[in-house]
Design a protein around this nucleic acid. Structure first.
Length: 893
DNA sequence: GCGGACTGCTTACCT
DNA sequence: ACAGGTAAGCAGTCCGCG
């Protein structure tokens, strides 16, 4: 079996490629040596073997785009500079003749020349002649506060025009695209992919055996149209390529401040860097310590394989740090953009280091590296889409301790004194642990984080640095932009899309929202055995594909298409031409559902390959989950509310039709939400009939996602519990699951889950009910007798969503507690977790740290216990107050 | 002056 | 800076009540 798996792996990828055995030694020692002494990174030689495109930027000194190539065999970064003479530009609807009249433009030192070009206007659906305004450097187009070409054109022309012109009629297009992105699109480059340098040119390396892959793809997607297949192939060629072995080092620094609680300002860098730790993928484990008077070595030691270096001067320590930053192709930090790298930069400047001695390029909000690629994992793990869809919402606040604890099971070292009071060994251990956690966040699960970034970089056509720092709407925007350029489409301005196609027509249920969203079916309360949950895999992306949704196709110009109405809306959608979104998102959906998801589970494939496919399908999931929402987000450059509205409307229509059909087939629908239906005890034949009907009538697939041995519904929507065949209890939306409720109550809820997990048949319920009654009585008595383990167990943990002064309309309880905490000198900011308990006296809340056992308002906790359990009890025919032994009369009182 | 009906705010969840 | 829908608890307001 194993041999067979290996064989298939070999067929997919030539082994020489996968392991880089064939790579020959590079012949650039002399030049390389000189550059290194001058702290200049190596230039790619005329010929360079397989290397990954990991970063791109504009090099102002050279006046060229710079691409960083990572060559895995030598584990080095090589620089490749543009040698094609490509220039930055934007478009305008003014003619060169008109532009010549604008003095400030013609005299602009950054202007190169004008060209008349023909583009396709996707909003008006016709070719259009525009003037390409070509510049000598990207900052001339935009980016400087004033006097940029993109501002001068609409500002100045109305003043000098012979006929009256309104500034709104003067258009400038594509002036806000970063120059290196523009370059990537125009040159048809694929960040994250493998290139060779041949005679000075960048050449994309083709996947070996790709014909075989494509043939397999064609057979899996035999129903796709040729146009669709083209896109499926395009994405697959990008995604199939394996990832390199990354060489990287994680870093963490400690600064000694006089006030222990305050984070030092990295822009001032007023205090010494006293410790820096490194943890590398090549086994490097190094701690650098600054010698200071009055500090002892102290007890404790680091693992044997950690090198410890002491430095007499901070300058020398910084030099030793910088040597590592010049050396490694990937530097990993946790908040290095805002702190570590920024601090090091300014600290070195304060010590009189020259610019070219410092390997860091500090920007407004990021810190990049002159040599390698800096990945700030804080930014990456902070990304909501990554947090929710890639890591299943396992960590809630984005701190090294929380993320490390929940994903790796490693905690930061606890500190009970300031950095300045630690012994060398304590300091080294503390700092090294942080570097270790940071490293492991990058390395765990087969370098999942780095590989996700690489895959997302390929999909979005963005450098790894940008993709790891920006949100999903930027990723989607960029692959849309690439496709516009590839087709010669003018990239429309957001205000033009909105003016032409911006209106929504439905009324949202939630006040303040722009349009109506998904449908939720009223649940049938009670206990139901054998419940099949059927759902549409990627419903919204499927709708975007099947219904041809996109900003071009919605409310299109053709008279003939006006009959093609979206249900429940007055909108129509184009029948004549596929929208780009429909093709791009549709192909990504198809690949995830029919290719990568199955392959990630295919046990006949080698584990290595399966893991790679699993990462790809995870990356696709993140993108697909956001692919509908972005159209309803004002911040998205192709914002088009009717597209989002139409998607949701078709979703409601789809699920409604399924429910009708289930009824016709005699299946009872117990519940449904957005894209799912819960069916009571359906026969296999009924399920098949529903699947076939959906395929035939709706041109979509629906399948059985899971089967519950039994499910318990309360009368509330988004609130239920299902027990799987293996006894796993799926809890959705119930209070007992919410993360802010006290541990004390959560423990009772967990015990109830255990009792429910054992129920196999309706008869078993009697036992389970008895157990549950006992649990409730138990917890009730413990509360009344004030018998809890630790007052922490009673704490509510609520996140402060806003800065504390921002709560003006009301003062919620957690804010009351936060204000009390603040008055004791604790600094609090948005995003902090507030732990408080309920107490008898005004204002009825107290930070848990300040509360005493006897002031706890026990009855409040009984109320919470009641409401938590009632969500389940009413379905079981139990009554909380009866359970705890209150008579009807007592309850009335 | 107090309590119930109501609305609005906030958080945490579901898809 | 992806979206809307739902639950729960509490804060605050209005109004009736001799």
């Amino acid at each position: 079996m194993k041999d067979m798996a290996q064989k298939r792996l070999d067929e997919f990828y030539s082994p020489s490629f996968l392991h880089f055995k064939e790579t020959k030694a590079e012949t650039l020692p002399l030049m390389d040596q000189i550059r290194k002494e001058k702290n200049l990174p190596p230039i790619a030689p005329e010929n360079l073997s397989s290397s990954y495109f990991v970063s791109a930027t504009y090099d102002g000194k050279e006046g060229k785009v710079l691409i960083k190539l990572y060559e895995p065999a030598s584990a080095k970064i090589y620089f490749w500079y543009d040698n094609t003479g490509h220039k930055p530009y934007c478009f305008t609807n003014l003619s060169p003749y008109e532009l010549e009249k604008i003095d400030r433009l013609v005299n602009h030192p950054g202007l190169s020349h004008f060209e008349i070009v023909e583009k396709f206007d996707p909003l008006l659906e016709k070719p259009i002649k525009v003037t390409k305004v070509v510049a000598k450097d990207p900052l001339a187009i935009g980016g400087r506060p004033k006097g940029c070409i993109r501002d001068i054109i609409p500002d100045d022309f109305p003043k000098i025009s012979d006929v009256p012109v309104s500034p709104q009629n003067i258009k400038v297009w594509e002036a806000k695209i970063k120059y290196y992105q523009s370059y990537i699109y125009d040159m048809g480059l694929y960040p994250g992919m493998i290139y060779e340098v041949k005679d000075g040119k960048l050449v994309l390396k083709r996947l070996e055996n790709s014909e075989r892959m494509i043939a397999s793809l064609k057979s899996v997607f035999r129903d796709a149209s040729p146009e669709e297949l083209e896109y499926i192939e395009m994405w697959a060629r990008l995604l199939e390529y394996p990832a390199p072995k990354f060489r990287y080092v994680a870093m963490d620094i400690e600064v000694c401040t006089p006030v222990a609680t305050r984070m030092p300002d990295p822009r001032e860098a007023a205090y010494p860097v006293v410790c820096v730790s490194f943890y590398g993928s090549d086994g490097l484990k190094r701690v650098l310590l600054l010698k200071r008077e009055g500090v002892n070595k102290g007890e404790g030691k680091l693992p044997d394989d950690v090198e410890v270096h002491y430095f007499d001067s901070e300058e020398n320590l910084l030099r030793a740090v910088f040597e590592v930053l010049w050396d490694y192709p990937f530097i990993i930090t946790f908040n290095g953009d805002e702190f570590d790298l920024r601090y090091l930069t300014h600290r070195a400047e304060n010590h009189g280091f020259k610019r070219n001695e410092i390997p860091i390029e500090p920007g407004k909000r990021v810190c990049l590296l002159k040599y390698g690629v800096h990945i700030d994992l804080y930014k990456f793990f902070f990304n909501r889409s990554i947090q929710v869809y890639a890591f299943g919402n396992r960590y809630r606040d984005v701190t090294l301790d929380e993320v490390g604890r929940t994903l790796l099971g490693i905690e930061k070292m606890p500190l009970d004194k300031g950095i300045g009071e630690l012994t060398y060994m304590e300091l080294a251990q503390y700092c090294f642990r942080d570097a270790e956690i940071t490293y492991k966040l990058a390395s765990f699960e087969d370098e999942l984080a780095l590989k996700l970034i690489l895959v997302l970089s390929r999909i979005s056509a963005m450098p790894m640095e940008d993709v790891s720092r920006q949100g999903v709407s930027r990723w989607i925007r960029n692959f849309m932009h690439r496709e516009h350029r590839r087709r010669g489409y003018l990239i429309p301005n957001a205000e033009d899309i909105l003016a032409l196609k911006g209106k929504t027509a439905t009324r949202a249920i939630i006040k303040g929202k722009k349009y109506k969203g998904a449908m939720v079916v009223e649940p049938v309360p009670g206990v139901h055995f054998n419940v099949a949950v059927m759902d549409f895999p990627s419903l919204y992306p499927s709708i975007i594909k099947i219904w041809n949704l996109g900003y071009q196709s919605i409310l299109c110009q053709h008279e003939e298409c006006r009959q093609n109405i979206i249900p429940d809306t007055p909108h129509w959608v184009c029948r004549k031409k596929r929208a780009l979104e429909s093709l791009l998102i549709g192909a990504l959906r198809d690949l995830r559902v029919a290719w990568y998801k199955p392959k990630s589970k295919d046990k006949t494939l080698p584990a290595e390959l399966r893991s790679w496919y699993n990462i790809i399908q995870g990356a696709l999931k993140v993108i697909l989950n956001a692919s509908y929402g972005v159209f309803g987000a004002e911040s998205f450059d192709l914002y088009c509310p009717p597209v989002a509205e139409a998607t949701a409307a078709i979703g409601r229509h789809t699920i409604t039709r399924i429910i009708e059909k289930a009824g016709e087939l005699g299946i009872q629908v117990l519940y449904g939400d957005t894209d799912s239906v819960f069916l009571k005890n359906p026969t296999p034949a009924q399920i098949r009939a529903l699947e076939e009907w959906t395929e035939r009538e709706l041109n979509m697939n629906i399948d059985v996602d899971k089967v519950y041995r039994y499910a318990v519904f309360s009368s509330r929507k988004k609130n239920y519990l299902g027990v799987m065949d293996d006894g796993t209890v799926d809890v959705k939306g119930l209070t007992g699951k919410k993360r802010h409720i006290p541990l004390f109550i959560k423990k009772a809820f967990e015990k109830m889950k255990e009792a429910l997990s054992k129920v196999k048949s309706p008869a078993d319920f009697e036992n389970a009910k008895r157990e549950i009654v006992q649990i409730i009585r138990d917890w009730y008595t413990r509360l009344k007798r004030r018998e809890w383990g630790n007052i922490q167990e009673l704490a509510f943990n609520v996140i402060l969503g806003e800065e504390i002064g921002h709560y003006t309309k009301t003062t919620p309880q957690h804010v009351k507690a936060a204000r009390i905490l603040q008055s004791t000198g604790v600094e609090l900011k948005a995003g902090d977790l507030i732990s408080f308990v309920k107490v008898i006296h005004e204002p009825h809340v107290k930070p848990v740290m300040l509360a005493a056992k006897n002031e706890i308002d026990v009855d409040k906790y009984v109320d919470y216990l009641r409401s938590t359990f009632e969500q389940v009890l009413d379905a079981l025919g139990l009554d909380f107050d009866e359970v705890i032994g209150l008579t009807k009369l007592e309850r009335f009182m």
